[in-house]
Structures are given as C-alpha cells and as structure tokens.
C-alpha cells in the first residue's frame, strides 16, 4: 500500500486545461525564436556564398571588398566608445553620488529621453548642426596638430567625417551605458562605501575604492551593449558620413571608410545580381562581429563578477 501510494497520486494529478494551453503557447514562442534566428543565419550564409566564392565584377575578392567596410565599422564604433564610456561613467557617478536628489532624477529622465529619439533624427542633427559646427575645429586640428596621424591634413570641407559620425554614435549609445551604470553604482554595498569613508576617504577616493571595483563587470557589460548598438547603427551613419571606402585612421579628412550597415542601406536599393550577394555577405560579417562581441561580453561578465561583499 505504501509503495502504491505515490503512483496513485501521480496518476490522479489532473491535467488542467489552462496549464496545457499555457505550456503549448510558451513552448511555441520559444521554438519560434530559434527558428527565426536559424532562418536569418541560413539566409545570410546561403545568399553570401556566391559572393564569397564567385568572381566579382569590380573587386579582386569578397574579402578585399568587405575589409574597408569592416574596418570602418570597427573604427567608428571604437571612436564612439572612447567618447561615450568615460562620459557615461561620469554621468552615472554624478547622478548616483554627487547630484542633489531632485536634479539626479531629472537628469536620469533626460538621459532616458535621449534613447527615445529615432536614429533618423540623430542623422539629420549630425548633417545639419554637428557637421558644420565641427568643420572649423577639424580645419584647426589639421593645420595645427596635423603631425598626429589622426589629424593629417587636408581637413574635410563639409565636416561629415568619421569623427562626426562617431560623435553622433556616442550620443546614441550614451543613454544605454549611463542607465546601466547608474543601476550598478546604486547597488554598491553600503558597507563597502562606509568602510572607505570611515578610513578617511574623500568622496572620489570612496568611489575609486568601493564603487568602481564593485561596478567593474557592469561597466564592461554595459559598454559592450553600447558597442553592439554602435556597430549595427545604420541610418545616422549613412546620413552623416561622406564615405570614400578608404582604410585610414585619419578622423578629420574627407577620405572616410564607410560602415557595413550604412553601406548596405545606401547601396541595396540599386543593387542587382552578384552585388546583392556581396551586400548580404557583408551583413553576414556584421552578424558574426556582433555575435562575437556579445559572446565576449558574456564571457567577461562571467569571469569578472565578484562577490559584492557581505
């Protein structure tokens, strides 16, 4: 009797209709997302293969063609990160540790609002306001600091350089990095902050001893999320950047590399035949880069997450 009892309860557990339906719905949703992802990957690979193996009309090989675009994508995203990450950390620290409470919440909303602006608006702002505004600065940089390879003359006459595009990108990724850093800095254990203050640390020393070490993995994670966005951003870059397909580190000149996403957006409407395959192939490269970046971030976060202290 005792051995039979569990079996009896198991058999008698009723299959409630709501449970069955919910399980079916959620399973379907889970499977669909995998199918969609696999579909995209298969499409990209299948369409890219002719361009990768086949002869191309203008260029020597697919890789020689895609390299300047890849370079432009990575270089513009890198420049954007160099500007956005320190700025975002500084803003997040100001909001969490220095600003009066009311100002902090207003600033928090303002930063979140930046994320709500459509990228085409950023593109318009980049062309109409930022590029003309920066152009004199580029001329000055090329004239006076031209010996630094980054600023080799001649300067662009329009201001639509990769640096302008990177500034626009930096403003676009700023909100996501700031918002995440702010959350992480707020979670710094109070005990660690008090430990450093009680040793006679100033506010800034306390931040260096307690807040930043605690937030390190979060800063990396949020930066890489921002990087993902900067890599894939299409519209703003396509509008702002006057590209010439060059591979150069010069950030103020008129010979700028394009980016993969912007190049696809600009050339796809008129593409036909093998060119379509080439563009899709470049999309596959971008897909691989973002996948790699995301995997890297997960790995770094898993590695550097420390026990926040008890």
């Amino acid at each position: 009797m005792t051995t039979a009892a569990p079996a009896a309860t198991r058999a008698s557990a009723p299959n409630r209709p709501a449970d069955v339906i919910f399980k079916a719905v959620s399973t379907t949703a889970g499977v669909l997302i995998l199918i969609a992802l696999a579909g995209v990957a298969i499409f990209l690979v299948a369409q890219a293969v002719p361009a990768i193996i086949g002869p191309l009309p203008e260029d020597d090989s697919f890789w020689a063609w895609v390299w300047p675009l890849t370079f432009g994508t990575l270089w513009s995203a890198f420049l954007a990160m160099v500007m956005a990450v320190p700025m975002a950390i500084a803003i997040a620290l100001f909001i969490t540790h220095f600003a009066p409470r009311r100002l902090a919440s207003i600033l928090g909303y303002a930063i979140d609002l930046l994320a709500a602006i459509p990228s085409v608006i950023y593109g318009l702002w980049g062309i109409a306001v930022l590029a003309p505004f920066m152009q004199p600065a580029y001329t000055w940089l090329a004239d006076n600091l031209g010996w630094i390879p980054l600023f080799s003359p001649p300067a662009s006459g329009t201001g639509r350089t990769i640096l302008t595009a990177a500034i626009v990108l930096a403003v676009m990724v700023l909100p996501i990095i700031t918002a995440l850093c702010r959350e992480i800095f707020l979670q710094t254990p109070r005990l660690n902050e008090e430990a450093s203050l009680a040793l006679g640390a100033t506010r800034w020393e306390m931040i260096r001893m307690a807040v930043l070490p605690h937030g390190r993995s979060g800063i990396i994670a949020s930066s890489i999320l921002g990087l993902g966005r900067a890599l894939g951003e299409t519209m703003a870059v396509a509008m702002v950047l006057a590209s010439a397909g060059a591979v150069t580190f010069v950030v103020v000149g008129s010979q700028n590399p394009s980016t993969i996403a912007a190049n696809i957006a600009l050339r796809f409407p008129e593409a036909h035949g093998i060119t379509v395959n080439m563009l899709i192939g470049s999309g596959l490269v971008l897909f691989a880069i973002t996948l790699l970046v995301n995997a890297l971030s997960r790995w770094i976060i898993a590695k550097t997450t420390v026990d926040g202290g008890r």
Binding site: L191, N192, E194, S196, P213, H214, V306, G308
Partner: peptide, 10 residues
C-alpha cells in the same frame, strides 16, 4: 562595523 566589510576586490 557590524558586519565584516573588507574590500572584496582587494
């Protein structure tokens, strides 16, 4: 303090 609070990353 009440609870031990060495700096966890040091």
């Amino acid at each position: 303090f009440q609870r031990p609070n060495p700096f966890p990353t040091m």
